[in-house]
Design a protein around this nucleic acid. Structure first.
Lengths: 145, 145
DNA sequence: CTTTACCCTACTATTTCTATAGAATTTCAT
DNA sequence: ATGAAATTCTATAGAAATAGTAGGGTAAAG
């Protein structure tokens, strides 16, 4: 399951994506708009900023805005910042590879091979879906299923 | 991430799949073979049994064996028993649908639509990979990547 | 030089996951 | 019958991850 942290991060980026062209948005306003606990959001935005996705400005009239084109912010990258690996087992992770505790022989592990397939299938969506795509899909009023 | 419970469950089913044709296997032996804490494995096997995947027999000479053909036991179903939903957000789950707390309007939610795609991609692998496939892949000594 | 607003670290609370305990029940063998 | 072998079931404890809070620090604006 996606952590709330990740969900909040995506929602914040989407909101800031819609705010493009306007002055930066304050944490407090964003927290209210998206119903996110203020101090928790503060941490999340800081992470996003330190990862280069946001620009921040202190002082009166300050706040946050996107530092990249929404087309260039992909969900896979956000997820990795907030939740870590995308793969369901550490030994199948591209960016956070770790040996599984229980695994006797990784080379012949049938579980691993299967979950590498899962990882690829998941990344195929998440590494190609950007904040811009998420925003675009909101306009599209067709129910998802 | 996959819980240990799920990993243990898959490993147990694989071991029992390989044990087909032999007398049932005791929890203790299975626990030793697969390095799973005995009492934890006990719970897991019980769940699998109650879900119809295992046959169990009490008393001397008892133990567990598969109750289905390994070809008919799919990882998606196992995962749902041990970990619950496969989707990364409750509102995108097929079998465990629940409204997201934060969601204002589900019909237009871009996040939801994206994660329905992710769910479909994941299921496309997990609902088609059986215990028999996992066993088959172990023989296949090619490294996974 | 005061107000506004982000920056950063540490801490607490809550929930979920992992594992253990122990008694009950069924089956088999003698 | 009786006892040992094995699963069944419920409860609970311990550990780890997640979620959220606190509070002072730092920079910019006016």
């Amino acid at each position: 399951m996606l952590s709330k942290k990740t969900k909040y991060a995506i929602k914040a980026l989407v909101a800031l994506g819609k705010n493009l062209g306007n002055p930066p948005m304050q944490i407090v306003k964003l927290a209210e708009m998206e119903m996110i606990p203020r101090k928790f959001l503060e941490q999340i935005l800081l992470d996003m900023r330190n990862a280069g996705y946001l620009y921040s400005k202190k002082g009166a009239g300050g706040g946050y805005s996107l530092n990249k084109d929404p087309k260039d912010i992909f969900l896979a990258d956000i997820l990795r910042i907030t939740d870590g690996p995308i793969a369901m087992v550490p030994c199948a992770s591209l960016k956070f590879y770790r040996k599984c505790d229980e695994c006797h022989d990784e080379v012949t592990c049938g579980i691993r091979k299967t979950f590498i397939d899962v990882r690829d299938a998941t990344l195929n969506v998440l590494a190609q879906t950007s904040i811009a795509d998420v925003i675009a899909r909101e306009q599209d009023k067709l129910p998802a299923f």
